[in-house]
Design a protein around this nucleic acid. Sequence first.
DNA 1: CAAAAATTTTAATCTAGATTAAAATAATGC
DNA 2: GCATTATTTTAATCTAGATTAAAATTTTTG
Lengths: 195, 195
Amino acid sequence: MAKIAAETRFNVKRDRILKAAARCFNEKGYSGTSLKDVAKHLGLTDAALYYYVKNKEELVYQCYLRAAELGREAMERAESEGDSGMQRARLYIRYHVDVMVGERGPVAIMSEIPSLKRHHRNEILEVSRRHSAGFEAILETGIADGSIAPCDVRMTGNAVMGAINWIPKWYHGHPAMAAAIVAEFPRILTRGLAP
Amino acid sequence: MAKIAAETRFNVKRDRILKAAARCFNEKGYSGTSLKDVAKHLGLTDAALYYYVKNKEELVYQCYLRAAELGREAMERAESEGDSGMQRARLYIRYHVDVMVGERGPVAIMSEIPSLKRHHRNEILEVSRRHSAGFEAILETGIADGSIAPCDVRMTGNAVMGAINWIPKWYHGHPAMAAAIVAEFPRILTRGLAP
DNA sequence: CAAAAATTTTAATCTAGATTAAAATAATGC
DNA sequence: GCATTATTTTAATCTAGATTAAAATTTTTG
């Protein structure tokens, strides 16, 4: 097996594992999902997971890293594609929602942060903070360029992010609804921002 | 000890326990908090909790019941005090936010639903559904009376509820911020509803 | 095909933390 | 003060589920 091929394969599998894990954690919570659960989704034994991941905590942590990555991508795309603050905000919301309902599966298990070790928790919280700051910056841009009405960016950011982050709590994989969410959320959440 | 006095005392204690538990669950998640943790907050031993509550699952369940009760109160007050749909929506948001940041402590640990037994989970989900339906009804009233712009009430409801339910994830008891939340959230979340 | 590396399984441990039972202490009523 | 009831503690269990080690199997490579 060539080295590159090996790594590719490894990552593909790893990806599958992370997806399965994220789904379980979302559905049953951290304590509610055993590694056996996750393994079953993959047609594996619980012990086999240890070949790919150090332990359970690491598994959630990796899910978060993945989520953070997707979040960052959404932010970057929004910032590069939109020119007014309002446009960027709308795009960001759109992309973020996409992540929440998309084929990648619900990987946004922010609820399980308390389960992380202090070390990892701090890292993830830091990422999350940067993320929020990014959205707040977008809002400020919009206020400056007149496309968004003046507002408390901190609170507004929290409200918008909350609405999106909460999606996995009520969306359970019905594809028709996914379309509705993607269509409606950007509209709903930006409507209140207009001057 | 007279019977009534006994029950009163019992309930007071029970209330303290539920509050302590809710705080712990919010901060550390279901698996992350041991009964010893909760007990320590109360100056008790873990075993002592079993005098008041059947087991850990029951404890989360009770927290939810409490939260549901507060939610219902918020809904009823909003419905009786407001006359237009928009006013009711604003009031409801206001009262719901109050619950989230109020002195009762963060009792809204919806994140831990997966930890509940099927039986209890269904009950709580049902309550939660009624609750959402209540808010959607308010939105429809508003659309009918012209105080709220036509919209997808399902999605809008989910967005608003999500923004509020997410509060405990980022609000950590700073009283000054509590005031800001109570002041800003109703404004932010209703702005987008206006016709 | 044979050796080496990668992957998975089986079969034990190991442990935190929930739960319980019995005993100890405190409060209450008479 | 004594008896009764309420509350809490101490000291065991008990168990699910995480983790590990060693063996078995499968895949790759040359």
